[in-house]
Design a protein around this nucleic acid. Structure first.
Lengths: 228, 228
DNA sequence: GTCTATATATAGATAGAC
DNA sequence: GTCTATCTATATATAGAC
């Protein structure tokens, strides 16, 4: 008498989980929960129960919760960052003086491509990014800037070139205002879409929200510095 | 032989703490820690040890941590909200068609007045607001909208009137983008000011950051709606 | 690799003496 | 009103059998 589980093991190899592998199941469950509830409000217990894997497997595969968080984000950043850089390069080649709105819009395609990688990928990624910048006291900021710094620098460079009337120090502030805008919007996007639906009968998805926020941010970044 | 503590009790009444009263000491310690570290990262143990009061006194005076959080915010909102409404009223009386930048700027004085109420009051209040909107899953949002809804409605009304080319649904989104901008900026203001100092030798305080962010937000809210 | 069981830490909240 | 001591819940992390 052998049970179903043992039967699978015989077919696909010993020690290999039947369904998709445990590591992936953890990442998939974790990213959804992190995006919805935030990092500190999501326990490993909740993750492993949703993933239908053992509690101890998180530490086996990732070492700690912090490293799991980084792994969840890395899976997206490794796709998005090179994609974004490619788009920026194409843009600069074709159009020396692209507008800010064009530059921001160039990031939309790489963002939406994340939906091909995983269901609701775009929404989840942006919410994760939001949570990450807001919640974590440094370790994610550090992780992102050290691992993807060259892409970020490239972005800053292209934006600065497109708005040469903004001095570097002012641009620093405005890009952080922009980060705040997008990060907060994405972290609360579910709630905001619900309200927009209830109060204005507006149907939105993550793309339409992105399209709304781009003009706002582009106008803010480029507004002339007041002389006061 | 009586000690100093007993002596104070004899003078100012029994059961009354000598220093400022326990409730206030808790509020003062809590608001600093909440602003710096966020709500869920701040334990009652940390608060009471900084306040030099007993752990149990939080529950005695406030009932729960959630209620303490609300009390901390209420102490500021009760000053700020009426002040802001007064400024808006004055503005509308003097100037039917005030610009968005003027409207936002009208809130600066009530904000800075919080520095008179308590040391670093402005910074702490804005950081708390940022943390509150970002962290809490509803209970603070609910508290703010139900207790201060009329002031918020008034603000929305004045802004909408100043940008009549923006339809209400679009204004809803843009005001939330604005909320995100200010809230994220304030929650990370300490880090941003440090970086600006290190990288650009720029000395900033909370007022100068507010002055920087206003033109950004005003431009974003008023930018014409794209026809796409 | 995966499981059970547990170590260890820390949280919010409360009972009851004073 | 304030204290000590403790309850209860929940967290991350790990040891060791399989």
């Amino acid at each position: 008498m052998i049970n179903l589980n043992e039967c699978f093991k015989l077919i696909i190899g010993h020690g290999m989980a039947n369904r998709s592998d445990t590591k992936t199941r953890i990442l998939d469950a974790a990213e959804k929960l992190f995006a919805e509830r935030g990092f500190s409000e999501t326990s490993l217990r909740l993750i492993t129960s949703k993933a239908e894997v053992n509690l101890a497997s998180v530490n086996y595969h990732f070492g700690s919760k912090k490293e799991l968080i980084r792994a969840v984000l890395a899976r997206y950043l490794d796709v998005f960052m090179p994609g974004a850089s490619t788009e920026l390069t194409k843009l600069v080649q074709n159009n020396e003086n692209a507008s800010l709105e064009t530059i921001f819009s160039a990031l939309v395609r790489p963002l939406l491509d994340l939906n091909k990688v995983r269901t609701e990928g775009t929404r989840i990624f942006l919410q994760l990014l939001g949570r990450g910048y807001i919640e974590s006291q440094g370790h994610l900021r550090w992780f992102i800037t050290t691992h993807y710094g060259e892409h970020l620098d490239r972005f800053v460079q292209v934006v600065s070139q497109s708005a040469p009337h903004i001095p570097p120090a002012e641009m620093f502030w405005r890009l952080h205002f922009t980060l705040g805008t997008v990060v907060f919007t994405m972290a609360s996007s579910d709630a905001l879409m619900e309200i927009a639906e209830a109060d204005f009968k507006e149907q939105n998805d993550i793309e339409s929200v992105i399209r709304k926020v781009i003009p706002y941010m582009a106008a803010g970044v480029a507004v002339p510095v007041s002389k006061a």
